[in-house]
Amino acid sequence: MNLKNQEELLHTLEGLHTIETIAETLNITTQSALNLITKLKRQQYVTVSGKGKTKRLYKITQIKQRPRVPGMFDIINKYSPHMKLNPWYDHQVHGTYGPEEALIDAIQTQSFRVILASLHLFRHINNWPKLYQLAKQKDSWQKIGALHDLAKLYFKIRHLPQKYQQLKTKKKYYIIKEYPTKETKFQPITQKWHVNIPFRLGDIQKTIGG
């Protein structure tokens, strides 16, 4: 197949397909469609979803679908069972990246949904010293502490060591700018950490699947 033909083929097939719709669109046999998909997959124009008994879906694009490494959205979506995020940009981190780094990045986004979904990351934080160091670099340790206490109200999470619960400053923070704490249930957390929590009880229910 020459380059021009392949471009036309990709233009015709662009979108989601099953093997039958590919065969039907191109008026070829299922076996020929499978051979074609194998070739396009090798060239990175196709990705496949569906395993085992699930019907396979082929996503075909005119541009190559590069292999990805996980970023913030991937980590949050992996650990947040009920609230999933639709990324508005493709975030990839080449290097060490886990729940600790993703939590810090989530706070930096200042996005209501991202921070809410990231509460589940506290269930997977193992390395408190690392999280503390990362948070200190971004001046967000108090925010982490407040979100930890908030998450603790709803999920079973690991205990935050006492030495990290000491406040060095009494500076006042907002998780999201100009959104003060309105829920009385969260007032003790605000008083302890000097951090305003923007969420309402209904928001938390969404992320815990209530």
């Binding site: 970023g71 940009y89 493709d90 975030h91 990839q92 981190v93 080449h94 290097g95 060490t96 990246y97």
Partner: peptide, 19 residues
């Protein structure tokens, strides 16, 4: 604001490429 992708290359320091 409207970047297509952010690739972070993390070593001791981070090289952030915004596409």
């Amino acid at each position: 604001e409207d970047v297509f992708a952010i690739h972070e290359y993390k070593e001791k320091h981070t090289l952030t490429i915004k596409v």
